[in-house]
Nucleic acid binder design. Structure first.
Lengths: 339, 339
DNA sequence: GTGAAAGCGCTAACAC
DNA sequence: GTGTTAGCGCTTTCAC
């Protein structure tokens, strides 16, 4: 299965053409110390002339690939756009590039395959992997985890303030007079109590707020299908309850948008009034759309992505003490929760 | 499954532990010819035991990285989700993996950086790069281009049938009695006549259909901001014309959704009836949402992504004659164009 | 069927 | 300041 890639120009070609050693070219490439301006000049113009581009594979084998891997569990999740945007912004102007690795199955596999020498560092959104396993991984390659409320020693974390964000949603809904408030969330494997995933925290806060408000008996939790499908059916099931909720707090905007779909369908079919409030999380682009107009929690996804990339760059510079960044949240109230 | 601390285990470690040569391990790894069952067995269990994972960089340097690069111009575009999904599906079960490279600026850079030995092949969505340049690139590494209506010799192409798709939209709108039909499209650099980009074709078809219907004087083309922002302002400008269009044909669903936003805002502000029909292209998930319910052209994005990946795999198997795949389109009529 | 050995393109010590 | 050299981990003839 060997592919003949057209032979490209190597560092030796450049060295020969410029009449210097390969090491000299390498130094120019990396802005390393010990190159005279004259030689730098000569080498650079030779590089330009020959159209030389360093082989990432060869560099990676010896030093760094100048690639940062960003693992994304689900390509379609709108929140990812913010993260990617932030990460791209943070590496702009550095020699590093972001590559995205869509998780095609168990996230362990994706992360390992990233760690197989392809990238210099990893940003990942993997609530499902074990902390110990991650600490091991982090010994091999710098790691920044997004959305994990653990406090590991070996890697950095970037999270939103899920406690505050979820509480803001609940207080908003309660202050509106809602009592039958349901929570629409991810499958159970992502919300195990104490697991420290964002969705487990949001769920816990939901439960706590309901209990505090004396509404423990009104707690209703619906979950989207494990298969990664949409949450419309789960939301529809809520609406079909004998005493349907008057408000749905969805774990993120994508599910909230699905909930709005379920509500709209119920309205169309049953002719019921659109009395169900819906709130989401992440404040994705779509939330501001006038036809959606979704109340949502802004947790500064772009900033989170940028922080994650910046922290990874810091680790590549040598930092080894862990850092844990928590992004502030702000509730954006829109008409989806209007009275 | 276990990751060892510190320096990772290499092929030599495996060879030593299994009491064979490195070459033997390599052969087992690649299912190459000339390994006895006994030895294979022994090597495999050693690999398992040591948690050995081959270095992608080292493999890439000598042979293949088993990574396919998918360049995506804009992470937020909803159509991309379909492409990625299809590509992932096509490589499932092969030793290859998809990595995504978000274009952070000029697409030339992104493509070159992919070609720098990182991946064995490239799938790209880059209407803006020159065909000659691509042919050069394709000499170095197998390339499949999405959404280019050129017929190059050096690389494969996968497109939708933009002629048929755009015509279906226009015929639909015309049959509904619309005469003031506007087209909302990308900035001019993406729609240059004859450039063969999907959006240039859709625009040409729009113009042709209008002319054929005797509506040449009603042609109105609005473009979204070059900076990559949304198309709401462009759509709003259309609606603010003295004689606003009664229908907007948007170049893709993202812009159509923006158009719906502009319409909704106009309705809210001016109290006008919602009389503007909107049609999109790509039939993204959101189009089916009851609150959006957007008429759109299904061009089988998932299938396109899968085809592209499959064709790339074929090239990696040795095919060198170019293939050009055109996906059939189907108009999905929804209430956004209801009378 | 199996192993020794020569690189792939680059970086990093260490000479000069 | 510049060049020489020894690998990084792997694949791949080519002997045995």
């Amino acid at each position: 299965m060997s592919i003949r890639k057209g032979r490209s120009v190597t560092i030796s070609d450049v060295a020969e053409a410029a009449g210097v050693s390969r090491a000299a070219v390498s130094k120019v490439l990396r802005n390393a110390y010990g190159v005279s301006p004259g030689m730098r000049q000569r080498v650079e113009s030779t590089i330009e002339q020959l159209g030389y581009r360093p082989s990432v594979a060869a560099r990676a084998l010896r030093g760094s690939s100048y690639r940062l891997g960003l693992e994304i569990p689900y390509t379609g999740a709108r929140f990812m756009t913010q993260i990617v945007e932030g990460a791209k912004r943070a590496v702009a102007g550095t020699p590093y590039q972001i590559i995205l690795a869509p998780a095609d199955g168990p996230e362990y596999d994706t992360l390992e395959s990233l760690a197989d020498g392809l990238v210099d560092g990893i940003i990942a959104i993997s609530p499902l992997v074990d902390q110990g396993w991650l600490e091991d991984l982090a010994r091999r390659v710098p790691v920044v985890m997004l959305g994990r409320h653990d406090t590991p020693a070996g890697y950095d974390t970037v999270t939103g303030d899920d406690h505050a964000g979820a509480r803001a949603v609940m207080e908003h809904l309660l202050s509106l007079g809602h009592r039958r408030i349901a929570h629409l969330t991810e499958p159970e494997n992502v919300t195990a109590p104490g697991s420290g995933t964002p969705h487990s925290v949001r769920l816990e806060v939901y439960r706590a707020c309901m209990a505090e408000a004396g509404l423990a008996d009104q707690i209703r939790v619906a979950r989207r299908d494990v298969s990664g499908g949409d949450a419309v059916a789960a939301a529809a099931a809520l609406l079909a309850l004998p005493e349907p909720p008057t408000a749905i707090f969805a774990g993120h905007d994508d599910m909230a948008v699905d909930a709005l779909a379920a509500v709209a369908r119920a309205v169309a079919v049953a002719g019921r009034d659109k009395t169900v409030a819906v709130a989401g999380y992440d404040n994705t682009d779509l939330a501001a759309h006038p036809l959606i107009d979704l109340t949502s929690v802004d947790q500064q996804g772009v900033e989170m992505g940028a922080q994650a990339a910046t922290m990874l760059l810091e680790r590549l510079q040598g930092r080894s003490e862990p850092r844990h960044y928590v992004a502030a949240t702000q509730l954006r109230i829109r008409s989806s929760t209007a009275l």
